[in-house]
Amino acid sequence: MSKKFWETLPQGSVVLEAGSSAKFKTGGWRSMRPRWIEENCIQCMFCWMYCPDMAIKATAEGKRAEFNYDYCKGCGICALECPGKKGNKAIVMEEEGK
């Protein structure tokens, strides 16, 4: 006899696959989009450290790379924390879809 769908669920809602949250692409929640302005970036890596979603990529050399928009929810913490260069922010928030 074939099992009903609810009978196939793991006991106690335990997630048995490690790292499966990577499958949950939260970038779709975003209404504000951060834009990186490389010439204003001093490579302090504050944005990389503060990002709650690990949506800022870093290179093998430890340099800042592009945003990972699959996971960026557009919270704006990176833009707030960004010290920029000589008063010019290296991250700005822009309305999504414009």
Binding site: F5, S13, V14, V15, L16, A18, G19
Partner: peptide, 24 residues
Amino acid sequence: DKPKSYGPLILTDLYHEYKRAQHE
């Protein structure tokens, strides 16, 4: 050796089914 997560967020897509399983 078998990492896993307890206490996930289960929304409208599966919560009802988990409760059905608990009733069973």
